[in-house]
Design a protein around this nucleic acid. Sequence first.
DNA 1: GACCAGGCACATC
DNA 2: GATGTGCATGGT
Length: 212
Amino acid sequence: MRLIYGKLYKHFGPQEWWPAETPFEVIVGAILTQNTSWSNVEKAIANLKKNRLLTPGALKAIPVSRLAKLIRSSGYYNQKARKLKNFTRFLFQGYGGSLDKMFQDDRLILRGKLLEVNGIGFETADSILLYAANMPMFVVDAYTRRILSRHGLIRPDASYSQIQDYFMDNLKNDAGLFNEFHALIVRLGKEICKTAPECGVCPLKGITWEVS
DNA sequence: GACCAGGCACATC
DNA sequence: GATGTGCATGGT
C-alpha cells in the first residue's frame, strides 16, 4: 500500500486537497459532487459564492426552491438542494450552526450521526470527516473501486467497508496521508485510467499489489 | 445523440 | 441481503 502511495506521489506530486476555501465549502462540494463531474460542481459553487451563500446561516435562510436554481449546473438539483438543507438543519439542531463545535465530536460518533442525515452516505460522510474536519477516515469512491478492482486487489462487488478497511488496515492512521492518497487516486482515475485504459502510461504499471 | 461523471434513497423481491 | 430505479446537468 505504501509502495503504491509512493509511486503515485512521485508521479503526480502533492495534490493539496480539497479544492475549497473553507470547511463549509468542502461539505457543500461533497454533497454537490455526488455522481457528478467536478466541473459542473464548480459552477454551482461559484454561483453560491457570488451570492454570498456559502455559510450555514445563509443556507438556513434561503428557500429550497431558490437554492435549487442556483445549483442547477450540478445536476439532481432538486434533491441536492434538499440535501444541503438537511445538513444545515442538522448542523443547527446539533451544534448551533457551528462546524467547529461539530468537529469536536468523536470521529466515529460523528460519522454515525452524519449517516443518519438524509442525503449523506458513506462517501459523503467520510469526505466531510477527512477533508473538512481533518479526521483520519479513508474515502472510497468510484475511482478507488475501479482501480483496486482492475489490479485484482478487491472483487468488483466488494462493499464500501471492505475497501475502506483494506486501506485503513494497511496504512498509518494519519489524516494527512489519507487525504493525499485519496486525492492521488482521483487524479490517477481522472487523468490516466480514463484516457488510457490500456494502462500504458500508468505510474502503477507493472506493480503487483500485495494483499495482506 | 449516446454515454459518463468523486452517490444516495427508496421500492421491491 | 441483493437488485433495480429515479434523480439531471454539462462535457466528450
